[in-house]
């Protein structure tokens, strides 16, 4: 943009000064709330001693990171984190788009509003409570499945909290149930924003509903899909702590399939209370996410510049 030297650039700034003014409050906020505290990244490399102050504490290099890589669990927690979050991204996106499209098809306004409210309900309940609700289903003695459902099917009661093999499915279902509604509302906003003329024209041309969805709806909300997916990829190393800790009730035998980076870090910190190690974990998670996003953003921008994040 500055290919013809500085003068045109400043002229341009003048032309856009109103737009820049609009951004000031937001930018100032992000600087204070997000950028100033980033000096805290140094904590990950320090042995914090408050008597010396954060900046005055001793440097310890990568010692705070060791526990994330050196132990036998490193492979398991990394694998679990990526597999779960990877499948969550795909499942959530597909389900939420499907529901959003369907919701947009409900002609009765009152029903549509009712459905939409109800679908968002699970999102409002905290994970701790969800953990108890799941327990009421799965409890060995008083749970619904063991008490009512399995006998109907002639299956012996199952000790759910000691059988790792069921948990990848249980966690996936709980996760989908809890967060699909939220995502759905975002996609719905994008769908509603689509100009109706497109559909009218398509109908006149005799396009079926399915064709319209494929040729109009999905391509037009593609920017929103892309952005949501990229953001999810950026957080792929972070997990919903409540889902992996509260819902399985922190049950030991389930750990090989329920342990993710966040729960592992939490357990270590419960006994240690070391902010150096938690900063290290956070930095590691951010860094991986950052690299993955840069990569996927690059791929997206090769295909369609407008859909890219930046």
């Amino acid at each position: 943009m500055a290919q013809t030297g500085w003068t045109p650039f400043f002229k341009k700034l003048r032309r856009y000064r109103a737009l820049f003014l609009m951004m000031v409050p937001g930018i100032v906020y992000l600087v204070i709330n997000n950028y100033l505290p980033m000096f805290g990244v140094v904590i990950a490399f320090k042995d914090i001693n408050y008597a010396k102050g954060i900046l005055g504490s001793d440097w310890v290099g990568f010692k705070n990171f060791e526990y994330l890589f050196k132990t036998a669990d490193a492979y398991i927690i990394t694998r679990n984190t990526i597999l779960y979050n990877g499948s969550f991204i795909i499942l959530n996106t597909v389900t939420a788009i499907a529901i959003a499209i369907l919701l947009n098809e409900v002609r009765n306004k009152l029903s549509a509003r009712f459905y939409q409210s109800v679908i968002l309900l699970p999102f409002l309940i905290s994970m701790v409570i969800v953990g108890y609700l799941v327990l009421s289903m799965l409890s060995a003695e008083s749970g619904y499945l063991n008490l009512n459902l399995l006998p109907l099917l002639g299956i012996e009661p199952i000790s759910w909290y000691f059988e790792p093999k069921y948990w990848p499915y249980i966690l996936t279902i709980v996760q989908l149930w809890k967060s699909a509604g939220y995502l759905c509302v975002i996609f719905l906003a994008a769908i509603i924003g689509i100009d109706h003329e497109y559909y009218e024209a398509a109908t006149i041309d005799g396009a079926t509903k399915w064709q319209q969805i494929r040729a109009i709806t999905v391509p037009l909300i593609a920017p929103t899909i892309t952005i949501m997916t990229l953001l999810a990829i950026g957080r792929i190393f972070y997990s919903d702590f409540g889902l992996f800790y509260q819902v399985p009730l922190n049950s030991g035998p389930l750990q090989p399939v329920t342990d993710v980076i966040d729960t592992y870090v939490y357990r270590g910190l419960m006994t240690l209370g070391d902010i150096g190690m938690s900063s290290a974990a956070g930095l590691y998670q951010s860094l991986v996410g950052f690299i993955l996003v840069l990569l996927s953003n690059f791929i997206v921008s090769r295909r369609n510049k407008e859909n890219a994040l930046f």
Binding site: G40, I43, R235, G282, G289, F290
Partner: peptide, 10 residues
Amino acid sequence: TLLFNGGLVP
């Protein structure tokens, strides 16, 4: 800002 933050203490 979505990816990096300074953490709680700072």
